[in-house]
Nucleic acid binder design. Sequence first.
DNA 1: CTGTTAGCGCTTTCAC
DNA 2: GTGAAAGCGCTAACAG
Lengths: 333, 333
Amino acid sequence: MSVTIKDIAKAANVSYATVSRALSDHPDISEETKKKIKKLAKDMGYTPNIIARSLITKATKTIGLIIPDITNPFFPEVAQGVESHAYDNGYTVLLCTTNWQIEREERYLKALKSKMVDGIIIAPAVDDSHIISNFNGGDTPVVFVTYSPDDPDCSFVATDDYKCGYMATEYLLKLGHKNIAYIGGLENSSSDRRRFEGYREALKSYGLPLRYSPMHGQFKQMSGYELTKELLIYNDIPTAILAGNDVLALGVIQAVEEFGLKVPDNVSVMGIDDISFASFDKISLTTVAQPKVKIGQLAAEIIIQKINSPQDKTPIKKILEPRLIIRRTCRSI
Amino acid sequence: MSVTIKDIAKAANVSYATVSRALSDHPDISEETKKKIKKLAKDMGYTPNIIARSLITKATKTIGLIIPDITNPFFPEVAQGVESHAYDNGYTVLLCTTNWQIEREERYLKALKSKMVDGIIIAPAVDDSHIISNFNGGDTPVVFVTYSPDDPDCSFVATDDYKCGYMATEYLLKLGHKNIAYIGGLENSSSDRRRFEGYREALKSYGLPLRYSPMHGQFKQMSGYELTKELLIYNDIPTAILAGNDVLALGVIQAVEEFGLKVPDNVSVMGIDDISFASFDKISLTTVAQPKVKIGQLAAEIIIQKINSPQDKTPIKKILEPRLIIRRTCRSI
DNA sequence: CTGTTAGCGCTTTCAC
DNA sequence: GTGAAAGCGCTAACAG
């Protein structure tokens, strides 16, 4: 049905090896034949079958990207970073979203391996052990994003989550807040855990106890909303709430206001991530920014570098700095 | 390096055809050998090479998805729809974002063809001619989303854009508005054009002239912002503004308020799409909803169906109904 | 039930 | 400079 290299060979009256070489600009082929064959290929509507090529070259020019949730604007931005860098280097990306489910992650990991992607960039849902064990001894390079694995041999690019939590809390503390609650996402998310650590340490360094037990749910607006409702009903009203990320923070604000309280007049609210909507004037969420697109871009750079030098197994680790973004959901007291 | 079917055959002392059959649960193989071989495969860490399989079966179990902008929350939602349906049916998706650039679209189309994807779902940036000509006579099924091509032979799933525009405008009209401006996105986007048509027809049916010349830019918040600034400076202040989509509407609101006007007290603002953030209480954007996830899901269904019955070339067309979502950015006058 | 064999479309030695 | 031929890892007739 579709035209192959053989068809062109026949039409051009050359061997099909010649066609292959001409099409890939092999230096041995005369300019004349090259021109002739390329023209022919175009006229006949030839599309190279990369599948067949990959079988030999062992390179698919595609990189797998696994993220937990495409619906949280944070991830599309990192995806954009990897995609654009990948595109510029002739790669396309296989996108996999896991919905924070570890089984989906595993299935996708297998699928990507089977599909012979040249490299994998993954923002793990929750825990990395299965990923790492899956790739022990494997030759597909992997880089983690948004996450720093315990295993020292892994490459990753992530924002310093601990610092995110610390920075946010410290800002609140400096504003005079003493009753600061933390609304987290998934309980066993390492990012969340580290952000929480930062929060706790900041409190500690100000000589403050942990007044509110940490609350966990999902990384969804609705979850932030529900958790906050619960918090407000069963506890002293905090003067400030730090959310595990911006999407959560949006839910927090919703709940606080629905409870009859004002943000920031009665309760200050702070997020982490700086998703694009946080800057919308009606929201003006004070938050700690992560360089989202940059994360993706760096990850793509690293994976491509690893693809190009497979013998070099030394891990590449990038920890990026968060940045405090002061807007209008926090006030000093 | 990696273990193949032959290695297993050797280890199991059978021909490698047997291994292939056992692994794919061929009925001819005895349960016993199957079990033995499967165990062996697992123990040896066998990963099937789908590339090799694809070369024969001509099926890659992947579908290409081309969208203009992953940063507009609208598209991730449709992407999620296709992804989840694809996943459930054993497909993975190759994501391509074009940034509204037709050259990127073309390059991706070629790449997807080369990579032998089984089908392509595309939300065209602006114009479909190159896509259609690219696939004339080709055997890769294509379904358009968010867009209805002129060519009657094409499959697509889209919301009725004309109706979106009409519905939104009619609502504003019923609220008593007579001076309604339209802030559009890309000039040659057919969705935008149709929404604008709906707007114009609605005005007409109320006997109202087109008081404001249509304004175009990009489908970005910033563009909505800038266009609105321009509108407000050089024209009579409209009592209502219809934006070509929600992201634009956010920019419109920002500009209006920065201009010293209140939404909806002085100017009503309406969007189209109903992105998730539109429902956030501080925004409460009145808009016309599209069934985003549904669009993606249907598109995936259709493409899979087309993949499964390649002889049937009859186009499948789904036009979905928009739904008016009344929130708080419009008031009656 | 299992083995033999051809071949998918391409790249790549090795000859000439 | 070009051709012949092997083979990537797998599936699918065709035998037996």
